[in-house]
Design a protein around this nucleic acid. Sequence first.
RNA 1: GCCCCCAUCGUUCAGUGGCCUAGGACACCUGCCUUUCACGCAGGCAACACGGGUUCGAAUCCCGUUGGGGGUGCCA
Length: 458
Amino acid sequence: MTVRVRFSPAPTGYLHLGSARSALFNWLYARKTGGAMVLRIEDTDTERSTPEHIAAIKDTLGWLGIDWDEEYLQSERFDAYLKVVDDLIADGRAYYCDSTPEEIKARAEARGESADGGYDNYNRDRNVQPGPGVVVRFRTPDEGVTAWDDAVRGRVTFDNAVLEDFVIVRSNGTPMFHVANAYDDLDMGITHVVRGEDLVNTTPRVLLLRQAMGADDVPTFAHLPLIVNEQRKKLSKRRDDVSVGDYAERGYLPDAMRNYLVTLGWGPKDGVEIRPVEELIELFDLADINKASAFFDVKKLDHFNGEYIRALPTEEFVAQATPFVDASEYDIPAELFASLAPMVQERTKRFDQAAELLDWVVGDPVEPSEKDWRKVMGKDEVPAILDAVIERLADVDWTAEALEALVMGVGEELEAKSQLPVRLALTGKRAGLPLWEPMAAMERQVIVDRLRAARARI
RNA sequence: GCCCCCAUCGUUCAGUGGCCUAGGACACCUGCCUUUCACGCAGGCAACACGGGUUCGAAUCCCGUUGGGGGUGCCA
């Protein structure tokens, strides 16, 4: 049997981390098995779905290097869903319902039950006719169980009795998620449904619908553990940085993001986490996916990204970092950046942080912290060091090698560390790029002025 | 309330009855390298939630407790 998986986002927002991971796991499985990856846009909620979101989702999938073999839009298939619903109604497996939420609630209260118990199947046999404000509900069985073997969770069982008759066609005539989903999985021959755990409870409904549509088989489900935030709650648009597109804009490499995402809920058995996607595809398996939710750890993502950035050929690094450098608050000439790129690349975990390393080269040094100043400049020998460096700077060859020899030479002669005071005077910070190359790229007078200013401050 | 689910270092993944005095990675700490930082290298800290079973033997199987999460929409 040829594997057919699908990624089915609702285009009601941008692609977020959780969805991206679902897409990725589907894709890995399809590519591993030589199966087909279907992109199915579930835009049955016509109110909230937009073409912009569809475009953005596709863009971001492309950015992540996730491709697909077939593409469908559910809004173009409404006729088919509605036809199936008509059959269901004719069969008595679905019925019209005109109960408003208020009425349902009122009846529950009248019975002395909790108001959030859900729909009470009130209209089942009342022969409501279609009209304004009328929805179609699916008649769920009153007994028995609906169960399936989940590739990650094992056997999952639901009592049919706890399933209320749910809406399958809205009062505005549009079909809802469950029907579209059940119909399409059947119609498109989907063999494996890989999606987030937040959808487990919809599975019995979809399965029941699928049966009602005449299916006698069940796809393999794999419900992925949720990606959570520090509070162990499902990542949410409101609280968390979940838009994958935003990560792209902040200078994360798609390969790094994809590689990190794979390690959430799954891991190669040999423990090697950072590796080429081809290997990931080879090693991946639905059966090895974890059950417990996983925290999205940006620090670890940063580490992955740093590894990927360092692995780039320098020219490639320059090419990719340049847009970010240009967009930064610093005015850094392309040539300067290119010449200093190797040392920047070594120290950059995100492209949007690259420019800041050169702040002192193209602008004034930052104001040193009091603590740094005291620690570095407070030493007795510092005035002598700075005086000597300033004096010798007047006629030194303006090359990185000569500058290094000069500063280190002064240090040796005075038997003191000369690099740090010079660094603080020039950059305002104790840590940063190696000094000599950038110095050689700067004006002699600027360097001398900064050293003099620092000397005067002691 | 009702339904479903989860539980190994701070985080993440490995571990599917003996190879576990529990392993890798991130983070953190120490040292080395060094022009500071970063990289790299060598170390270190640190976990099987708890209680019962089953078994010659349990992180691995079963039950319970506790803790956590997801769902409960005319969203998906």
